[in-house]
C-alpha cells in the first residue's frame, strides 16, 4: 500500500494525467487532427488497459494462476449481468452477492 505523503504525491501524479490529457489541446487552444495510426492506437488503449487490470484479479489467487476461484465465477456473473441488463446496480449486486455467497456461505 502506498501511504502518507507518498500517497498524496501519487494522487497528484494521477491528477496530472487528467489535466495533461483533457487539457492537451483545449489549453493550447489549437485544434488538431492527430495522425490516424495514433488515433487507432489510442482507441485500443482503454480496452487493453482495463482488461490488464481486471484479468489478473480474476485469474490469480495470491499471485498464482488459478482458474477455479470464486472471483472468476463472480466475474463471469458480472459480465453476464452487464451484457443482459441496463440496470447500473445489477452487476455490483450480483457480483458481490456471488462472491460473498461462495466465500462466506460455502467457505470457498
Amino acid at each position: 500500500m502506498v501511504e502518507g505523503i507518498w500517497l498524496w504525491l501519487t494522487l497528484f501524479a494521477i491528477g496530472s494525467t487528467t489535466i495533461l490529457t483533457r487539457g492537451s489541446f483545449v489549453i493550447s487552444g489549437e485544434g488538431a487532427r492527430l495522425p490516424s495510426a495514433l488515433q487507432r492506437a489510442l482507441r485500443y488503449a482503454p480496452a487493453a488497459a482495463l482488461s490488464a487490470l481486471i484479468m489478473p484479479d480474476l485469474l490469480l489467487d495470491a499471485g498464482a494462476f488459478d482458474a477455479a476461484n470464486p472471483k472468476l465465477v463472480a466475474g463471469i456473473v458480472v459480465a453476464l449481468a452487464a451484457m443482459r441488463s441496463r440496470n447500473p446496480w445489477l452487476p455490483f449486486i450480483a457480483g458481490m452477492g456471488v462472491l460473498l455467497l461462495l466465500r462466506k456461505g460455502l467457505g470457498w
Partner: peptide, 9 residues
Amino acid sequence: NLRFVIFSA
C-alpha cells in the same frame, strides 16, 4: 486517460 487527448483535440 489517453482517450481524452482525442476529445481535447
